[in-house]
Write a protein that binds this DNA or RNA. Structure first.
Lengths: 339, 339
DNA sequence: TCGTCACGCCGAACCGGTTCGACGCCTGTC
DNA sequence: GACAGGCGTCGAACCGGTTCGGCGTGACGA
């Protein structure tokens, strides 16, 4: 293994001079800099990450804590992960991926051992077990997902309340007066998936204000259960002319359900989902949707995290809770209700 | 930050004794061991990963190189990633996730800087640019996916040739004499996705042997293109009674295509796909399939990699190329052709 | 009673970087 | 011609672990 000592020797300078020539933190003559650069190239030198981390207390690695639950839609999580990973790399950080089911213990492990300069937590629950660990850790963190207590945390999430209102308003404006909202499975709620009831409660309230009947139900996460549920909902509420989906699996299942019933959107039924554009393209979902913007959220979280990591004063600045305003992507699946 | 020096002082011993008490690499009196353990617990000591890596030349981190191409099905990749990640953690390794588009450069970066003890390469292409870098690296590596030249590499992949033969034989046995095989998009092939032609060539050869007509076409990776393709294929080959899919997107799109045409499997058309069981459950695909076993492959790759990392003699043992035998998961979508 | 040996612990060196203080030399100034 | 000051370089210390060699103590056998 070639070390900075080898480079220094080849360039005929001391180790410290070689280090300064590479970092540029002190002025170095053009000639020496050249000799060092040549030696680096010739010997193929790359700094040892462990040694550098030890000396500088910076690892240039960000921990990414993802949780994969059986009843959630894994491909959706992937979008967040890629958003985080891409942004981190742009800012010269690598990603330590942690998928252990015991997120709190894993978080303690990687922070205590100083493997990472900061962490991004995905899929944050209302009362997330990882948060006490994060608050006690010396490294900063950023969340994607809104917990019950945001104190001393940087939090990024879609504005699910606004999303719920937007869905209802959009349908109301088109003339719909009876809607069905399919949320995530109740398990997700029990585990503290606050976004489910944030959207649902806001939608119910808005429906009340607008004088719209809204049937809100918890969904399923897998086929065929979710397909059967959609079918039975359409049976039970024949007067409903619009369907709101805060549930990726339901959105993915809906096309064949509609087909089977001989229905089409928006002629027979207006539909709005809540999922990312990437998701829509992958599964070719023809439904208009509230964009859940996983890439944007991942990007925002990493940017804020890196700001805190790199600037000492940013460490003590007040923490931010930032909501991304939902945007409705019109794919033409909503219209006035059939007469 | 609490160091092993703090622990040693609290326990009233030297740093080296504290280290030996924790590692157990030399005999230590029960009393001292107890005092050290107490000090560790009291102070909340965790070894600094960078310092340990520097001293031992082991990082306990495995690099995971994943490539996400626009025209491949990202959710499928996730299954491999999780298989690798879970197995690595069982063996006490963490995962450094690398998703850069320039995989070769990224690989050089993490190996040269000694951030990882070894790497797993996913989605390996016929003439993968990362392989020269891996061969030159001091760390061992394991591949998931078969390159053209496997020399001095540990390689794990599904036996796609056998999968192709199995698909054809299965259909032939049921009485089918004209089949359609939909592969991945041609882009994937051009990029060196050998598994596409490995399955296709073997299927064509087997069809020739069995006297079956096989129409092999490259597919699309997204809707609506893939749906339209399926439709036009069924139009063009009205005599085909069986459909073979080596293309996740096509499998996901098929249910609504069948619905639209008023067909059902296996009554009107027999269908076999090639995808993981997890994939089938997530999208509730009702089609029998060759299990692509991403979890098993990820697991095998990591186990072999860790073997090489941890045992000095394993470093020089001959490299392995191991194919997982395809298994047909019967979901009831194949039967004798309609009379 | 003395020598031997095993056990348990310590001190020092080392891993490969970074960084601080010091120092020599060259230039410019009065 | 002496001196101040800046530039470029070096030596040494440090980050926090691990590991090797050595040393003192006590038990044991001759």
């Amino acid at each position: 293994m070639v070390t900075i000592g080898d480079v220094a020797r080849a360039a005929g300078v001391s180790r410290s001079t070689a280090s300064y020539a590479l970092s540029g933190k002190r002025s170095i003559s053009a000639e020496v800099r050249q000799r060092v650069d040549d030696a680096v190239r010739e010997l193929g030198y790359t700094a040892n990450a462990g040694a550098r981390a030890l000396a500088t207390s910076e690892t240039m690695v960000i921990g990414l804590l993802a949780q994969f639950h059986e009843d959630e839609f894994a491909p959706a999580m992937l979008q967040y992960m890629l958003g985080v990973s891409d942004t981190a790399r742009e800012l010269d950080y690598d990603i330590l991926l942690v998928t252990e089911s015991d997120g709190a213990r894993a978080l303690r492990r990687i922070t205590d051992s100083r493997m990472v300069d900061g962490v991004v937590l995905l899929n944050v629950a209302e009362d997330d077990k990882r948060l006490p660990v994060l608050r006690a850790a010396p490294q900063p963190g950023a969340l994607v997902g809104l917990p019950g207590d945001c104190s001393s945390l940087d939090v990024f999430d879609l504005d699910f309340e606004e999303a719920g209102r937007m869905m209802v308003d959009h349908m109301h404006r088109l003339g719909h007066r009876e809607l069905i909202l399919v949320s995530q499975p109740e398990h997700v709620v029990e585990r503290g998936g606050a976004y489910v009831w944030r959207l649902q409660d806001a939608a119910l309230e808005q429906a009340r204000i607008r004088g719209v009947r809204l049937h809100a139900v918890f969904g399923e996460s897998k086929q065929p259960a979710v397909g059967q549920l959609l079918n039975s909902l359409l049976d039970t509420h024949p007067g409903a002319t619009g369907l709101l989906l805060n549930n990726e699996a339901a959105a993915a299942a809906l096309p064949s359900v509609l087909h089977a019933r001989g229905l089409s959107a928006p002629a027979d039924l207006s539909v709005i989902g809540r999922y990312s554009d990437e998701f829509a393209r992958t599964f070719s979902l023809p439904f208009s949707s509230i964009e859940s913007a996983p890439d944007r959220l991942g990007r925002m979280a990493v940017r804020q995290l890196v700001r805190r990591i790199e600037s000492p004063e940013a460490r003590n600045q007040p923490h931010v809770v930032r909501f991304v305003s939902p945007e409705l992507v019109d794919r033409g699946s909503t219209a006035a209700p059939p007469t």
